[in-house]
Amino acid sequence: MKTTMTIPSPGRKALAFPYILWMIGFTIIPLALIFVFGLTDRNGAFTLANVAAIARPDHAKALSRALLLSLVSTVICLLLAFPLCMILRGRRLGTGSFVVFIFILPMWMNFLLRTFAWQTLLEKKGVINGILGAMHLGSIRIINTPEAMIFGMVYNFLPFMVLPIYNTLCKIDDSLIDAAHDLGADFFQTLLRVFVPLCVPGIVSGITMVFVPALTTFVISDILGGGKILLIGNVIEGEFTRSSNWNLGAGLSLVLMVFILISMAALSFFDKNGEGTAF
């Protein structure tokens, strides 16, 4: 006799209660508030001005800069993560291995602290320049540039690209690879026609998990960009904290949400089974 754990129907529904409560309290109500604030002015009257404000030159520039930087860092993350995952897979280490653990380890420490650490490392009189100077190797000038921000994004978000890709790669059956080789495919053919197509869900999930936080970040640009290079995230954060113009901040958030939805729609086109989408 087979026994499975079945909970009687009414009890099962009761178990969903906390999750529904959670969703209403922390997703639906806040989202509704963003819509309410974004589509009204300070007096509560309906307006589209907050959303249209994205066309202002300073906002448009911040948005396009954020799109560019997050795109570049997503591509870099992908180019770094995929070969790495191939190597890890080739070593047959398994998900619980020490090497994978090492990649995840930095995520245990606070993200802000790690970014501040990079500031100290990259500064003019920072640790790296100190070492270079001691060896008479000149110095690097990277802090407070867009390059430093891309560096910070890649550093912080790389694990989010590595993990999903590695998981899908590990799930690929060895017999498929053997079959490809038997049929005369060389390494690159196997890579492009077996590994990559099978890995699409992982890649899609990785891209979303890197692109979205990179697009919306304001901390990395503040710490590594010296407050000189404004991203759309900084503009929104400023409206909420310094200018206390919540309506404008919410309106711009709505625009940003549209861009995120567009990117996710584009990605789901490649991942038709929806296996990899993070949401």
């Binding site: 202002r56 030159p57 300073d58 906002h59 520039k61 911040a62 407050g227 000189k228 404004l230 900084n234 503009v235 400023g238």
Partner: peptide, 8 residues
């Protein structure tokens, strides 16, 4: 607004 224009 002016400050955002400087920073952007």
């Amino acid at each position: 607004t002016m400050w955002n224009e400087v920073k952007a």
